[in-house]
Amino acid sequence: MRQSHPPLRSYGRLKTRTIKPRQAALMETLLPALRPPSGAFDPRALMPGAAGVWLEIGFGGGEHMAAQAGLHPDTLVLGAEPFQNGVASALRHIDEAGLTNVRVLDGDVRELMARLPDASLDRVFVLFPDPWPKTRHHKRRILQADSVADLARLLKPGGRLRFASDVAHYVDWALALVLANPAFRWTAVQASDWRAPPADHITTRYEEKRLGDCAPVFLDFLRGQPAVL
């Protein structure tokens, strides 16, 4: 049995402002149809014949998630976000684009990850997560040794993990944590590989605000073959 997790601790409240009427209606009508099943499940059963399964952890307002789903209609895109305002925004993007290849968990991604089978994901995105800058709060960052181990379990050999942040300490933290897991290899060979947005990156309004202390950094990792015992 996989370990259960304490409730997710996050900045402020899970709802920071009143949700607009149209988005509130989508929370009632569309969200129930997009939530992943409760209990363990195989994501490919949600979209038979999918070319791949991607996961975005903490999708914010859903701009990147919806845009990637629109560009890759043959791929199932899973997303998890605990903030109600972000979920409501994502639902608007999904509804306006008429997307049918997105599933949304309005909650703790760790609970979703625990329900997925091994080697069930092709790509994972962790883009501009809450940095929890104070040292005593670092334990609340979404990337920890155990969550990296979970991602190693979930990604197929050859699968890819992308982390992006504009907080220098979090970039260093993420790079050290991921590389400490032998399942992952950093794909960068030159500075432009982490300084320039990847060709398939979708820039969001949040990213454009540049709220961090450095220019955005993009770290792409490759999931290697499992060790032979």
Results as ranks from 00 to 15, higher is better:
Lys20Gln: 14
Lys20Ile: 12
Lys15Leu: 09
Ser10Tyr: 12
Lys20Leu: 11
Pro7Asn: 07
Ser10Lys: 06
Leu26Cys: 02
Pro21Ile: 12
His5Cys: 06
Arg22Cys: 06
Thr29Met: 04
Glu28Asp: 15
Ala33Asn: 10
Arg35Asn: 08
Ser4Ala: 12
Ser4His: 10
Ser4Lys: 07
Lys20Ala: 15
Pro21Thr: 15
Arg13Gly: 08
Gln3Tyr: 08
Lys15Cys: 13
Gln3Arg: 12
Glu28Thr: 15
Ala25Pro: 01
Leu14Asp: 08
Glu28Arg: 14
Arg9Pro: 03
Leu34Gln: 01
Ile19Phe: 01
His5Gln: 11
His5Arg: 09
Arg9Trp: 09
Arg13Asn: 11
Leu26Asp: 00
Arg9Cys: 07
Tyr11Pro: 04
Ala33Tyr: 03
Met27Lys: 03
Arg17Ser: 13
Pro7Gly: 05
Arg9Tyr: 10
Leu31Ala: 02
Leu30Pro: 02
Leu14Asn: 10
Leu31Lys: 00
Gly12Arg: 09
His5Lys: 05
Ala25Leu: 11
Thr18Trp: 04
Arg17Asn: 09
Gln3Glu: 13
Arg13Ser: 14
Tyr11His: 13
Glu28Phe: 00
Ala24Met: 03
Leu34Trp: 01
Ser4Ile: 10
Leu14Arg: 14
Met27Asn: 04
Glu28Val: 04
Lys15Val: 15
Ser10Gly: 13
Glu28Gln: 15
Arg13Glu: 12
Leu31Tyr: 02
His5Trp: 12
Ala25Trp: 00
Pro32Arg: 03
Ser10Thr: 14
Pro6Phe: 08
Ala33Ile: 06
Leu30Lys: 03
Ser10His: 15
Pro7Val: 12
Arg17Lys: 13
Ile19Cys: 02
Leu8Lys: 09
Ala25Gly: 10
Glu28Gly: 05
Thr18Pro: 02
Pro32Asp: 11
Ser4Phe: 08
Thr29Leu: 03
Arg22Tyr: 15
Ser10Pro: 00
Thr16Trp: 09
Leu34Phe: 03
Met27Trp: 00
Lys15Gln: 15
Arg35Asp: 05
Leu14Met: 09
Ala24Arg: 01
Leu26Ser: 01
Tyr11Leu: 07
Ala25Met: 07
Ser10Asn: 06
Pro6Leu: 06
Ala25Thr: 08
Pro6Thr: 11
Gln23Thr: 07
Lys15Trp: 05
Lys20Thr: 14
Ala24Val: 05
Thr29Phe: 01
Glu28Leu: 06
His5Ala: 09
Leu31Glu: 01
Leu30Gly: 02
Glu28Ile: 03
Pro32Thr: 07
Lys15Asn: 08
Ala33Phe: 03
Lys20Glu: 15
Ile19Lys: 01
Arg22Asp: 14
